[in-house]
Amino acid sequence: MTSEDQDPHAPIAAVSASADVLRHPEAGEHLLTAVERERAARFRQESGRLDFTAAHILVRLCAARLLGVPADTITLAQNCPDCRKADHGRPYLPDHPDVQVSLSHTHGVVAAAAGRRPVGVDVELTARSGSLLQVAGRVLAPAELQQVEAHPEPGRAFLRQWVRKESLIKLGRTTLDGLAAVDLSALPLDVPPGRPLRSRYQDLHLVDWTDPVRGAVICAASTAAPRIVVLTPEAG
């Protein structure tokens, strides 16, 4: 992995093609727990299984880098506060309760984050912007909706706000039902490809990223400024 800066205390956020994660020297399905392997096996399509697996490996790589330990020492678990089942819900590290983690996966692209403060990350493909735009009226604040509708590319503009809001859900700051009450209209909608855009919302640091190679948009949010990490399959 290579990073944009060297602040050792900042949360780490990474994005990669699923295939690149699975080729990483430390990667392997042996890293997954029995619960994760059973969940992966439920996917009807092999591509979905691989994306799930890659995301669960990438979050371990992020946590391992943060802690300075091998990835095979990281155990990932999940717990649903509603039904108490351990096969879904917010991810956490049982052996490192001081470390917060988040992960996201879409078709062929995955993202993950790890930090010593609450952190959330989300990734979506730009190709999905048209279909996601259909829910804009339900998840955007009035000022956001006005901005998106006035943008030359409404689908792309909405996608940017969507990943931001999803990262806030994973951070624990809002819920799916509460998205319309979160107003991010003060944040810019256009993010230069390949360069992180940093902004603030209340006490949070948001880092937006556009990956033109993978056709994806990413947002990481935390109370400390996250740093973007680029995964390279050839090196750890």
Score class of each variant (00 low, 15 high):
Met1Val: 10
Thr2Leu: 09
Pro8Phe: 04
His9Ala: 15
Ala10Gly: 03
Ser16Ala: 13
Ala19Asn: 15
Gly28Asp: 11
Gly28Pro: 03
Glu29Phe: 00
Leu31Ser: 09
Leu32Glu: 12
Val35Tyr: 00
Ala41Ile: 03
Arg42Asn: 07
Phe43Gln: 07
Gln45Leu: 14
Glu46Pro: 08
Phe52Ala: 07
Thr53Gln: 13
Thr53Ile: 15
Leu58Gln: 08
Val69Met: 14
Ala71Trp: 04
Ala71Cys: 10
Ala71Glu: 11
Thr73Leu: 12
Gln78Phe: 11
Cys80Val: 02
Pro81Ile: 01
Asp82Pro: 01
Cys83Asp: 01
His88Tyr: 05
Gly89Ser: 08
Leu93Glu: 03
Asp95Arg: 12
Asp95Thr: 07
Pro97Glu: 02
Val101Ser: 04
Val101Thr: 10
Ser104His: 09
Ala114Gly: 13
Arg116Lys: 15
Gly120Gln: 14
Glu124Pro: 13
Thr126Val: 12
Arg128Ser: 15
Ser129Pro: 07
Ser131Trp: 03
Val135Ser: 12
Val139Ala: 10
Leu140Tyr: 00
Ala141Tyr: 00
Pro142Gln: 04
Pro142Ala: 04
Gln147Trp: 00
Glu149Thr: 09
Ala150Tyr: 00
Arg156Lys: 06
Phe158Ser: 14
Arg160Asp: 04
Arg164Lys: 05
Lys165Cys: 03
Glu166Met: 14
Leu168Lys: 11
Asp177Trp: 04
Leu179Lys: 14
Leu189Lys: 00
Pro193Leu: 04
Pro196Ile: 00
Ser199Asn: 04
Arg200Ser: 03
Gln202Arg: 03
Leu204Val: 01
Leu206Glu: 01
Asp208Tyr: 00
Trp209Ala: 02
Trp209Leu: 10
Trp209Gln: 05
Pro212Val: 05
Thr223Glu: 15
Ile228Thr: 08
Thr232His: 12
Gly236Ala: 14
